[in-house]
Design a binder for these strands. Sequence first.
DNA 1: AAATAATTTTAGGTTGCCCTAAAAGCCTTA
DNA 2: TAAGGCTTTTAGGGCAACCTAAAATTATTT
Lengths: 220, 220
Amino acid sequence: MLSSTEENYLKAIYNISERESGSVTTNNIAQVMQTKAASVTDMIKKLADKELVDYAKYRGVSLTEKGRGLATQLIRKHRLWETFLVDKLGFDWDEVHELAEELEHIRSDELINRLDQFLGQPKFDPHGDPIPNASGRFTIRQQTQLSDLKPGEKGEVVAVHHHDDALLRHLAEIGIELKTNLEVLELHAYDQSIQVRLGTGKVLQINPGLAQKLFIRRSN
Amino acid sequence: MLSSTEENYLKAIYNISERESGSVTTNNIAQVMQTKAASVTDMIKKLADKELVDYAKYRGVSLTEKGRGLATQLIRKHRLWETFLVDKLGFDWDEVHELAEELEHIRSDELINRLDQFLGQPKFDPHGDPIPNASGRFTIRQQTQLSDLKPGEKGEVVAVHHHDDALLRHLAEIGIELKTNLEVLELHAYDQSIQVRLGTGKVLQINPGLAQKLFIRRSN
DNA sequence: AAATAATTTTAGGTTGCCCTAAAAGCCTTA
DNA sequence: TAAGGCTTTTAGGGCAACCTAAAATTATTT
Ligand SMILES: [Mn+2]
Ligand SMILES: [Mn+2]
Ligand SMILES: [Mn+2]
Ligand SMILES: [Mn+2]
């Protein structure tokens, strides 16, 4: 039985290792967990004792199979709760992350499987992130960063990277949400910004930072 | 901001003072919280510092207005989550108490108010217990213990006392749930048992312990 | 290859919630 | 009303998760 804190560390390690290659460093975890390196070392030892991470002093950690499995289940719970909050309770997509951070620690397989059924076994959460199934398998989807599209290419917004509430609110404001269709009109060499036309006809300048955080499925 | 533990103590004190008159004793709380008297004394001091209980050494505690308000909100959350689990996720009434014990500590007024809306602002939980509204007011209902009915009296089961899962399963097995209609046929002086006929026609012998835990609204 | 800089670990301490054992206070009953 | 028996509090610790400061190790620069 893991504490909520242990679960959060596992998830942090999982997320870091998804976006960076090699082993995960103490400082890296400290930053994500908003804590101090010394505290991370304490916790790493505990997780290593429980065989959830492989750990070599001064060399960082990586998840074991067991650790990765638990992290995946936690992500499943997080994303299912987010889906519940948006689809059933009518929250906006920028309001659900913190709540899901608490709800994900409710410990009951029965609960999460019933919730999954109730929601119609969704494959993606309100931010377009894939929801692993009960065996921990993710649905793979073809997607590209908006910043990689060439002028003339069209597509549909399928995910946003990631849980920055201000970003999500901004997107909603300028008219971008999941399933929004768009076409790249021009790339401006001067500031790397991208001009796009939305399905609604609205034309927008998207700055490069934002364009990296929007994931598109090409549609032609 | 209260910890889950502090919230649970408040709820325990609230529940004890509902069923017993006078101030709530340390041992009483220790028994409900499954902990030791010394631990209770520690916590009582903390709650007294926060002005959630009135405390006089060796004299027990009682909730302040503020403490009672928080306890009531916790009970609201508990009962709304139980209602969600039964009505929306299809759990049986004997399966939801422990889960609600965890869910009730999720801290968000917005969440609980949306959940309330989603459930249709229910007035009673799956065990027939009243759900306080956002201002902490309970719906009052006329009800009598089955053990107080006289032969010939009829009524409807409106609540069961309380969260003993085995009791709830037993009731379901013998055909008693909320809204079950019944009529008292006979009282047996020998063992104080009560013979009742359910709406279905089924005739049962109910022992006096159980009869005290069934709440009935008279219907004639 | 040193020297310096950065990272990581260790040492020692705090807080919240729990414990056992002993002391203190309250209550009953002779 | 005084003793004995409960109940409650205090004293002194343990454990999880955090902290700061110092030491150890690794990485980078000269
Ligand atoms: Mn999230
Ligand atoms: Mn998400
Ligand atoms: Mn309950
Ligand atoms: Mn209930």
